[in-house]
């Protein structure tokens, strides 16, 4: 499964037991946002309305670990708030010697079990197949395995 708009795209890549989420964009922030969209699409095919907003912040010593922290933050907000999100505004800044800090706004709506018919539940983001890198076209790729 995949989706794209402008210079950004998300995809779900095959994995034996779980799913690999991938986001691509012109910047690391855009790639992170698209990876989170892939996470949502691992759960539902139904459009998710941007009716409510939640803000999250996380930190990590490098960009790859930051991707895991970011996706885990989204998973946590989904689980505790009973929501799905499909629009993300991500800002990543250097956090001094500590690495990177991410602040993001997530837009979504409460999970409607009948309408969204969730296929699975994201348990956590893993360090497997984890990569955040610039591709040969100058865009950014963010990818990892999600346990579902």
């Amino acid at each position: 499964m995949k989706g794209s708009e402008a210079n950004e795209s998300w995809a779900l890549l095959p994995h034996d037991a779980d799913v690999v989420v991938e986001g691509r964009g012109a910047t690391p922030e855009a790639a992170f946002a698209q990876a989170a969209r892939a996470l949502t699409h691992a759960i539902t095919d139904t459009p998710v309305a941007a009716r409510e907003a939640v803000t999250v912040t996380c930190r990590a010593p490098d960009r790859e670990l930051l991707l895991v922290e970011w996706l885990n933050a989204v998973i946590y907000e989904m689980a505790v708030g009973g929501r799905l999100f499909d629009r993300f505004a991500v800002v990543i800044v250097a956090d001094g010697d500590a690495g990177w800090q991410l602040t993001a706004t997530l837009w979504g709506e409460p999970l409607d079990r009948a309408r969204h018919a969730p296929a699975c539940e994201a348990k956590g983001a893993t360090y497997s197949a984890l990569t955040v890198h610039a591709d040969t076209q100058g865009g950014w790729v963010a990818r990892c395995v999600i346990d579902v």
Binding site: P61, L65, V68, E69, N72, I75, Y76, A79, K123, G124, A125, T126, Y127, S128, L130, D147
Partner: peptide, 30 residues
Amino acid sequence: RGLGHQIGTDFLRDMLPAAAAAGIDLPDRE
């Protein structure tokens, strides 16, 4: 359920720098 998922998440994150501090050369960060 969610409790186990979050404990896995919490400790995976904490074990990564702790492994390095303990001198364990990980073949895979996971």
